Computed example of a mutant assay.
Amino acid sequence: MARTDAQRESAGRQEFIVDIGLSWLAMKSGYPVWLSAEDHDRFVPSSGPVDVQLRLVEDAGAEVGRTIVLQIGEDVRRLLASNLPDEVLRTVWLGATKRYFDPAQHDLTGREWLRRIEAAWTTGIRRSDARFLPSPPQPVTDANLRSAVLEQIGAVADALEQAAVRGSVPGLVPALEQVVDRACADVGFRLFLRSMKAYFVAIDEDRCDAFTALGERLGYPEFLVDDNLNVG
């Protein structure tokens, strides 16, 4: 499997990474909830929720390692290069963020929202490298990996879908499966993991081991798969 810019950047050095790329952004999207009133006034733009989310993207390079930041653009461009419907893109974002931020409430389709993320990502990267040009996206389309990811999603599909329906995101599991099948097995698996963590869906040790083994096949950082999974 071809290595992405983010994977090449991380080669030869160790980082404590619990997520990367678009799934990392989904994890961080609700951060203003945890700010004190003083920090909220200091750090959160007053121009609205869309700008709050995009500021996260632009400022990511100052907060986390380049491995995480480069993968944001890679993930977004993998999805934009696909023929996935807007509603699928919106649904997987809502599922991964536990519906904290809904682009549709701000007159943005799923694809338009990803384009806004891509633009903010480019702006942030070029603060430190004005001539930065991203490589063409390299989606993971290997049939065996796609099958393996779909197998793991299928194993917990009922529990995840029930949790998502309770959280007002019906159709999350079919949407995640479409991402895997029609866009990228890697992005689909990480958004699936982020959704499992968002809804705290319980799994046993054997299922966690299966997730971890698949993460190793995809070259994930050591802690990405099991950090905050509900394993009992």
Rank of each mutant, 00 (worst) to 15 (best):
Q7T: 13
E9C: 06
G12L: 06
R13P: 02
Q14H: 12
D19S: 15
G21M: 02
L22A: 06
S29A: 14
V33M: 10
V33K: 12
L35D: 00
H40V: 00
F43W: 13
G48L: 04
Q53E: 15
L54R: 07
V57T: 08
A60Y: 05
E63M: 13
G65P: 08
R66W: 03
I68W: 01
V69C: 13
L70M: 10
E74S: 14
S82Q: 03
L84P: 03
R90E: 10
T97I: 05
K98H: 10
Y100V: 00
Q105P: 00
W113C: 10
R116A: 13
E118M: 05
A119C: 04
G124V: 07
R126A: 07
R127Q: 15
R127W: 01
R131P: 00
P139T: 00
P139I: 00
A143R: 07
N144M: 01
S147V: 02
L150C: 01
L150W: 01
E151R: 14
G154H: 02
G154P: 01
E161G: 07
R166D: 12
R166Q: 14
R166A: 14
V169K: 01
L172M: 12
V173T: 08
A183F: 06
A183S: 08
S195Q: 11
K197I: 11
F200G: 04
D206W: 13
C208F: 07
T212R: 09
A213W: 04
E216D: 15
L224Q: 15
L229P: 11
G232P: 03
